[in-house]
Amino acid sequence: MSFLDALIDHINYIGAMALFVIGLHTVVTHSNLIKRIMGINIMGTAVFLFFVAIGNVTGGVPPIIDQTNPDAVYINPLPSVLILTGIVVVVSITVYSLSLVIRIYETHGTIDQEEIAKMTSEDRDQ
């Protein structure tokens, strides 16, 4: 019973870990570069969820101070602010890698990692 209680208390963290593993699985097992970028995005989302879950307070309200109600319990605003920075970084990384994928497609004619590796090794053998 105590295990189930602990599970319910940590359900946000466990969800974040599940998202992270799904993203890592996508990155490792797919050779399509676009799918890999999607996997990196899912991993980033997992980190955001983990960080925001740390700042959660059960029964708390968003940190917009209500001066008529001084007893209100607010959630922790600091992780939310830090994650706002993280979102911008993930957007930048995504755009940069997408532009690299466009360039790779123009050079090799494919965006499949294994085919590209095969082509480059053939070039080296010649």
Binding site: V95, L98, S99, I102, Y105, E106
Partner: peptide, 12 residues
């Protein structure tokens, strides 16, 4: 700007 830059690219 990023969207314009990405879709301007004419992929053969």
């Amino acid at each position: 700007t990023l969207f314009h830059t990405l879709i301007e690219e004419e992929v053969v």
